[in-house]
């Protein structure tokens, strides 16, 4: 009994956290223009894909999705490159410098984005990059989020000193060490970073909102916002748009979740888990 209660609570929380996605899907299957439901409706009486059929007539959501994919296809590999190089660089620093570098990375995580919105915009305007994907992809230069550098630093932390020193004695430079020792042993971290970076870039709303004016360049979240402005009360249509916008990151997450949520992998290696 005393063990059952916490588990029940945990199950309730997990179900609660699944509910936004479930509600989104069930809401998208409702017939359009129906009166409000009486009482609670878990699944609409006569589910229909009507809203999904209509959505393509209202907005070129496929174009927006393709734009989002282009941004992610450029930004995610660049994030992996910058993040893993920085994480490995931190690993190679002498202990004192490592502490400073980690502190600086955490510090970068603590800078509020509002502090750089307007001035970053000016810099990109000066560079003639407004109304292009450059400012969106450019975020990969800060590894999308300094958090991802920390993920890599954490993974490379577990590389034994002896292995690095032996390879260095054989004449391997830092780039070579990163490529042939670091990356192969941090595959789980890379998978995690790919998932996290993809969801960030796909979902990014504020930067496309600031930088993109031409509708032909709009990304999926901007398209969804446009859909809301055009049809503010057509709930099945809006939920269908939300489902379509949510599907790619959820799919990538489900494919890669083992890397950071599994019992083994990235994080489990840190503490030899023994029950």
């Amino acid at each position: 009994m005393r063990r059952a209660l916490p588990r029940l609570l945990l199950a309730a929380v997990a179900l609660l956290y699944a509910s936004p996605l479930l509600l989104m899907v069930s809401g998208s299957l409702r017939g359009r223009g129906l009166p409000p439901p009486r009482g609670v409706e878990i699944l609409p009486g006569s589910p229909t894909l009507d809203a999904y059929a209509t959505i393509a007539e209202v907005l070129p959501l496929a174009t927006y999705g393709r734009n989002s994919l282009v941004v992610a296809a450029l930004a995610v590999p660049l994030t992996v490159l910058v993040g893993s190089l920085a994480g490995f660089g931190i690993r190679l620093l002498p202990p004192r410098a490592t502490r400073w570098a980690l502190a600086a990375t955490v510090g970068a995580l603590l800078v509020p984005v509002t502090a750089v919105w307007a001035t970053r915009f000016e810099l990109f305007r000066l560079a003639g990059a407004v109304d292009t994907f450059v400012p969106l992809v450019g975020l990969a230069l800060v590894a999308t989020s300094p958090f991802l550098v920390l993920v890599y630093a954490f993974a490379f932390w577990q590389l034994p000193d002896e292995q690095l020193e032996a390879a260095a004695l054989d004449g391997a430079g830092p780039l070579r060490l990163w490529w042939s020792i670091g990356l192969p042993q941090a595959r789980a971290a890379t998978l995690a970073v790919v998932v996290l970076a993809f969801t960030f870039h796909w979902s990014n709303f504020i930067d496309p909102l600031l930088y993109l004016n031409r509708q032909s360049l709009f990304t999926a979240p901007l398209g969804l916002r446009l859909l809301q402005q055009l049809n503010p009360t057509d709930w099945p249509l809006l939920m269908a748009g939300a489902v379509l916008t949510t599907l790619p990151p959820v799919a990538v997450f489900l494919l890669g979740q083992r890397a950071f949520l599994g019992d083994e992998g990235l994080l489990a290696t840190a503490g030899r888990w023994r029950r």
């Binding site: 956290y17 699944a18 989104m24 979240p221 916002r225 939300a242 990538v252």
Partner: peptide
């Protein structure tokens, strides 16, 4: 446990515009 972790993490991967629309609706 892993299913639980996936479910707790799930709302984080929903684009925030989509999540906001769901809450606007609920």
């Amino acid at each position: 446990a892993r299913l639980g972790r996936v479910l707790v993490y799930l709302p984080t991967v929903i684009p925030d515009v989509a999540l906001a629309l769901v809450f606007l609706w609920v």
